[in-house]
Design a protein around this nucleic acid. Structure first.
Lengths: 222, 222
DNA sequence: TTCATTTTTAAGCGAATTTTAAGAATCCGC
DNA sequence: GCGGATTCTTAAAATTCGCTTAAAAATGAA
């Protein structure tokens, strides 16, 4: 994943640079608007982080120019604490999200991930324990042997594994896997969890899909 | 954590309600502006979600009234897809953030968490002494070892820790954790405090949950 | 259309959670 | 130290929630 950071405060810039490099991003950085715009237009980034206030071409202008060139790279604005209104203008200018300073690196990362996910890239190996799935071929393997899953079973498993070690609430599951965004009183999830557990059963009673009562389910190594 | 939702579409309302309850929020809901305003002014919420377009008093008016009464609760607007400009008015009226419909529950939750964090408690990490909790995974740790808590136990602990070093009255606890808003003669709280103390016992007799006789309980480093 | 497969609904069971209740222990003012 | 009030502890009752199963409904291929 390749990222461009446009930010004039050297401290923040290095902080972001180091942090993102640790997360395996390839980082390009610019400390002023002209350089930033130049880079943004001549390279192919997976994500762009733009500070609002940089010397030279302003952040919002960079954003406009990028969109003007029909480049659809996700853009996240870094705005000063009390300029929420500016952030709105940023979104109008074509940004995908904004985050207010000071922010936690963790949160920035989360928002970057959201953008990358929506943008369809991000290739991590999807696996938990001896089970792994291949998105390209839509196959699931337990060790070497293939396991046949139906579409819904696959989708559910994919979602759980993408969120490995995080609890997936019923609400999130029904939203992401069934695409239901309103009140629904159903027990499909239970049934499908049951299907998956049976099919993925490693024989030794171990189970990679845990239940968090009252909340939802979680995929974990265990 | 206690939340007020003002939203007239029943489907969305229930969807939000269920989702937030899964995340341990005590949810109050209003389907029109008048009721929403009434609730907002007479109760003590941790966060308010306002739909822009509701019958009766408009969302923005509710927002103004809340600020007029010097109530500093974080407010997040839920706006229709293409009314970005309205969002600016909302923010000017005193809202803290906004989110465009349709949104993913996940994103809303992220924004709520940002607001809860920024509003005072400032503890990016919810912890007291050697005990810390992870909202993503719904896990509680005492040092390195995980402690299994039930939903109510978790919700109570979360509330106490968010209010670390502040006394939480029984009334506030029963309202924010159990969502009971009338005089009730129950001893659930005592029982659950007892559960928590047992489970969190650090062995050396130290206890992070103190009793303030005649008032309530408090989480502190000690 | 028919048949097989996938997806959803529904209901009973059982275990885990939550609540109630009541006696024991503790605290605090007198 | 006494007595009333408050909190703690325990056990049992009530309830909720997830698991499982079976069958109905929907989908789609032959």
């Amino acid at each position: 994943m390749r990222v461009l950071i446009v930010e004039d405060e050297k401290g923040i810039l290095n902080f972001l640079k180091d942090g993102l490099q640790e997360e395996n991003f390839a980082v390009d950085a610019a400390q002023d608007g002209n350089e930033g715009l130049e880079l943004a237009l001549t390279n192919d980034y997976d994500i762009v982080l733009l500070d609002w206030m940089v010397p030279g071409v302003s952040g919002i202008e960079i954003c406009r120019q990028i969109r003007k060139q029909d480049i659809s790279v996700p853009i996240i604005f870094l705005t000063a604490k009390d300029t929420v209104k500016d952030a709105v203008f940023g979104l109008e200018a074509g940004a995908n999200d904004y985050i207010r300073k000071p922010f936690e690196f963790e949160e920035l990362l989360a928002r970057i991930r959201v953008q990358l996910r929506e943008n369809g890239s991000e290739h991590a190996r999807l696996e938990v324990g001896s089970i792994h799935l291949n998105l390209d071929t839509h196959q699931v393997f337990k060790g070497e042997t293939e396991i046949k899953l139906t579409q819904k079973e696959f989708a559910l498993l994919e979602f759980l594994i993408r969120n490995k070690d995080k609890v997936c609430s019923r609400t999130r599951i029904i939203e992401h896997v069934w695409d239901i965004h309103f009140d629904s009183d159903t027990s499909v999830i239970d049934v499908y969890i049951n299907f998956l557990r049976k099919k993925l059963d490693t024989g030794d009673g171990k189970n990679h899909i845990g239940t968090i009562r009252g909340v939802g389910y979680i995929a974990r190594e265990e």
